[in-house]
Design a protein around this nucleic acid. Structure first.
Length: 261
DNA sequence: ATGGTGGCGGTGCCA
């Protein structure tokens, strides 16, 4: 079972890239972020033609998440707990039946939080507290789950091409990192770091300032696994080549493989 | 030090 996450930065602009990648990578389940589309604007026919069921939490112009699955999926949440009525579209969660029991997959688009010291940063931290609550509730089931997405947090200095330049950025604040550690310390596994202890493993390169050409990346897209899922983790990957293709997203897909045979 | 890019929507906002 291959589970992937990808911030596509507009699913309409990226339909060609997405369909080509689905055909190559053949993930079983994918969570997408920043689809920047309402449900009716999503390229449903193209993605369904590739064999995927499509579930969408859409929004006009900004944010927006989706869950694609080769297998039947039951949507279990479209927001985190304690959502406001006008909640931005940043969370989707579904449940898939596997030979080894149910697998829950959450798709996360965590608030960026810049600039630090503003309402936006407070919202980021509050959102992380709500994600923590959701993770606690899921952990109580003692089942497999994967929370994948654009976390907008670089967990450590290793995950930043220039830590000094990013010291004031919301993605690298001690408070942001502490909130992510609180989540991990519940007992979750950062899938990429389970295999790559001492290499950066960037997942994002800004469009600006030649970041891709210079190798100036960040690791902000993560797959966090429950103990029951982590016990079955056999492989991880970062599809870095996507960033070098024509009209790329600024993020690349990150995936993990679970042995459910 | 500034501006650098991209997407949305049709102007600035967001990242």
């Amino acid at each position: 079972m291959k589970v992937a996450t990808w911030n596509v930065n507009s699913v309409r602009k990226r339909t060609g890239n997405l369909v080509a990648w689905l055909a190559r990578a053949k993930p079983d389940v994918v969570v997408l972020q920043e689809i920047k589309a309402q449900e009716a604007q999503f390229p449903r026919l193209e993605v369904e033609a590739a064999g995927y069921k499509v579930e969408i939490v859409g929004q006009k112009g900004f944010n927006g998440v989706a869950l694609l699955s080769l297998h039947p999926v039951e949507i279990t949440a479209r927001t985190l707990p304690d959502a406001e009525a006008d909640e931005p579209a940043r969370y989707i969660e579904g449940r898939i039946t596997t030979p080894k029991g149910p697998l829950t997959v959450g798709g996360i688009y965590l608030p960026n939080g810049n600039p630090v010291g503003t309402e936006k940063f407070a919202y980021k931290i509050a959102w992380m507290d709500r994600l923590n609550q959701r993770a606690k509730n899921l952990l109580a089931r003692e089942e497999m789950f994967v929370l994948g997405g654009d976390y907008n947090v670089c967990p450590t200095e290793m995950d930043v091409f220039d830590p000094k330049a990013f010291a004031g950025d919301a993605l690298c604040q001690p408070q942001s990192r502490a909130a992510l550690r609180t989540l991990l310390n519940l007992g979750l596994t950062d899938a990429v770091r389970a295999f790559h202890l001492d290499t950066p493993c960037y997942t994002f390169w800004d469009y600006q300032a030649g970041a891709w050409a210079k190798g100036n990346g960040l690791r902000i897209d993560h797959l966090l696994l429950s103990p029951q899922a982590a016990d079955r983790l056999t492989a991880v990957g970062i599809d870095k080549a996507e960033r070098g293709l024509p009209e790329p997203s600024d993020h690349v897909p990150v995936w993990c493989e679970l042995d459910l045979a």
